[in-house]
């Protein structure tokens, strides 16, 4: 362990020790999720035309999907009314995207979000889209609102790249949060630069990666066209739904239970240890929209 990281990691370990009892129950998560909590509303929307035969994203369909998802999520008659529930014209909005080479947040989704923000009255100069440069981006430095959007994929160390993990670029040394296979990523969500600002989470499930090989993790053999978006206010709940789908796909493909290695325990711990959101499916109100074939959940 490097000396510059000891202070950071010791802090996390100390925090973890105060909730050590939850760690003991990790072997029996069912017992721990016994008490009722307010449910998190999550929309899973799919469209058979979301991905073109070429593999490219269908821009028009993505716009429709995100419109429909927010309408369902916020129970409005039109998408503009939905966006008005979470965005004010005077907001400074950072869209936290993900630019991983092999499976990035679709540009079509970024533009769909930006379009709706501007329709609500947010000035274009107050909208920023960024990933690795968020700490240097003036929009993100003064943002009042964040929209979190990224594809789900398997990951060699955290189990999966998730919405919770997407905020790791808000810290100067991301590797400080790698300890124990990224168990405490949720701590980042309590930092002043992001705390309380996230109005919407979009887990992109258009072509998820369900198995990682090699140092870069990507192989087209382990990508499939799910053609979905998972949308919600609770990032942990969205991630929990996405994780279920990934696990089901792995079982379907490999013909047996093939657990993620390491497991994506940061999602469960985001709930149990850090109270960021709901990871238990019993505490998630999951609403389906779109075609059902191959839904896996």
């Amino acid at each position: 362990m490097k000396s510059r990281e000891i202070t950071r990691r010791e802090f996390i370990k100390t925090s973890a020790l105060t909730t050590a009892s939850t760690a003991l129950f990790m072997n029996s998560p069912e017992k721990l999720f016994a008490q009722t909590k307010p449910k998190s509303r999550v929309v899973l929307i799919r469209d058979e035309n979301a991905v073109l035969p070429s593999g490219k994203t269908n821009s028009e369909v993505i716009h429709k999907m995100i419109d429909e998802a927010v309408k369902i999520l916020f129970e409005t008659k039109d998408p503009q009314s939905a966006w008005k529930k979470i965005i004010k014209p005077e907001d400074v909005v950072g869209i936290k995207t993900n630019v991983w080479n092999y499976l990035r947040t679709p540009l079509e989704l970024e533009s769909a979000i930006k379009k709706r923000l501007m329709e609500v009255g947010v000035k274009e100069e107050n909208i920023g889209i960024n990933d690795r440069g968020v700490l240097r981006d003036p929009i993100f430095q003064k943002a009042t609102t964040l929209i979190n959007a990224r594809p789900m994929r398997t990951h060699h160390w955290s189990g999966v790249g998730s919405l919770v993990k997407n905020y790791i670029m808000f810290v100067p040394n991301p590797s400080d949060y790698h300890d124990d296979s990224c168990a405490d990523l949720a701590v980042i969500w309590k930092l002043p630069i992001v705390k309380g600002k996230t109005r919407l989470n979009i887990l992109v499930m258009l072509t998820p990666l369900f198995h990682s090989v090699g140092p870069h993790g990507f192989s087209p053999e382990y990508v499939w066209q799910y053609k979905g978006l998972i949308v919600g206010i609770d990032p942990v709940a969205c991630d929990a739904v996405g994780l279920k789908i990934i696990e089901a796909k792995r079982k379907e493909f490999f013909g047996e239970d093939k657990p993620l290695s390491p497991p994506a325990k940061h999602i469960q711990l985001s709930d149990l240890r850090h109270k960021l959101g709901n990871a238990d499916m019993k505490n998630i109100e999951l609403i389906f929209s779109g075609f059902a074939e191959g839904r896996l959940i």
Partner: peptide, 11 residues
């Protein structure tokens, strides 16, 4: 880490 992100931890 700058090159392969969290995949570095594997190595």
């Amino acid at each position: 880490f700058d090159y392969i992100d969290g995949g570095a931890e594997l190595f």
